[in-house]
Amino acid sequence: MPTALVTGAAGFIGSNLAEALLDRGYEVRGVDNFATGRSSNLEPLESREDFEFHEADIRDGDAMADAVSGVDYLFHQAAVASVPRSVEDPVTSTGANCTGTATVLDAARRADVDTAVVASSSSVYGSSEQLPKVETMEVTPESPYALSKYFTEELALEFSDFYDIDTVALRYFNIFGPRQDPEGQYAAVIPKFIDLMLDDERPVIFGDGEQSRDFTYIDNAVEANVLAAEGDVTGEAFNVGTGGRVTVNGLVDALNEQLGTDIDPVHDDPRPGDVRHSHADISKAEELLGYDPEVGFEEGLERTIEYYR
C-alpha cells in the first residue's frame, strides 16, 4: 500500500486530494497549519483509519522531516493563495510559498521520497495575449503570488536534476468545487458568487466581466495529481485545465440559469495583478500523463451549487 503526504490537507484542493487518495487505497498523511485551511475540511478524513494528520508549518524543517518519513509520494498543495492577497502582503505569500516549498522538498529528498508533485498556477503566464497558454511559452509572472508559484515549480523541477527524486509541477487553471472557502475578500470567484446568489445578493465583478478563465472542476485536478505521481514523467510542468474558457459575465449567466435567478452583478474597478484571459492548452498533459478532464464546466458548476446549498 503506497503512502502519500499531502501538504495543505485542510485546504480546498488538499482535502479533496487526500480523500481521493484514501479511496484509491493509499495511506495518507496530511499537514496543515490552518493559516488558510479549515478544520471542517478534515472532518470526512478523520474517521478513516489510513489517515494521519500533523498540524505543522511547512517552513518547520524538523516537522517536515517527521511528516515525510517513510512516504512514497509527496503532493505539495500548501500555499498562501490569491493574487490580491500577495499584492497586499508579499512577505507572507513569499515566505510560505517559497521558503515552505524549499523546506518540504528538502525533507522529501532526504527521506528518499520517490516522487513529488507540486502545485503551480496558470498565473505564471501573466497577461500574454497568446491563447491558449502552452507550456513552451515564456512565463511572465505579474504578482508576488505568481512569482512565488514560478519559484515553486522551478525549484521542484531542479530537484529532479540534482537529486534522486522525480518531480512534476502542475499549473492549475482556476480550480473550483466543494470545500472551497466562499468567505472573505480573497475568496475565489465561483464559491463567492454562489454563496451570494443563493442569498439573492449581487456578486461584484472587478472590471467589465469580459475577462475569461479556464474554470476546472476539482476532480480533474485530483486526477492530474495521481497521474503525475504514478506515471514515469519527471522534471516537467503541465497545464491542468479543461481547454476551454468562460467569461466572468458568462459565469454569472450560468449561475442564474442553474439557480433559477435573475441577478445582475455589480461592477467595480479591476484589481492589480489580475490577468485578462486564462485558457489552457492541455495537449502536453494528455500526451504524457494520459490526462483527460472528465467533468466539464456546467456539470462541475451543478455539483458545486449542490454542495453549497
Rank of each mutant, 00 (worst) to 15 (best):
V204L: 10
G243M: 04
V204N: 11
V204H: 02
F238N: 13
V240L: 05
A228Y: 02
V246R: 14
A228Q: 09
R245M: 13
G244F: 07
V226Y: 06
T234N: 07
I205G: 12
G244Q: 13
V222R: 08
D199I: 01
V233F: 04
T234M: 01
N225S: 13
P203S: 04
V226P: 05
A224Q: 08
D200T: 01
N220F: 05
E201K: 14
I205D: 11
L198S: 03
D200G: 02
V246S: 07
T247K: 06
L198I: 10
S212W: 00
I205F: 02
Q211K: 12
A229R: 04
G244P: 00
V226N: 09
E201P: 03
Y217I: 05
F238H: 04
E210Q: 14
S212K: 03
E210A: 12
E236H: 11
E223R: 13
D214Y: 14
G241W: 10
N225K: 06
F238S: 12
L198R: 10
A237R: 01
G243Y: 01
R202K: 15
A224Y: 12
F238E: 13
R202I: 09
N220P: 12
A229W: 06
T242P: 02
A228R: 07
T234A: 13
D200L: 08
T234Y: 01
A229M: 07
F238R: 08
V233E: 15
V226E: 07
G241N: 09
G209E: 04
R202H: 12
T247H: 12
T247G: 12
A237V: 11
D219L: 08
F215Y: 15
V226S: 03
L227F: 05
V226C: 11
E236L: 00
T242L: 06
E210N: 15
D214S: 08
R245Y: 08
V248D: 04
N239P: 04
G235D: 05
S212G: 14
T242G: 06
T216G: 10
Y217H: 15
D200M: 05
V204Q: 05
E230S: 00
D232E: 15
T242A: 02
V222M: 09
D199H: 15
N220M: 09
F206H: 15
R202V: 08
E230D: 05
E230T: 10
I205R: 06
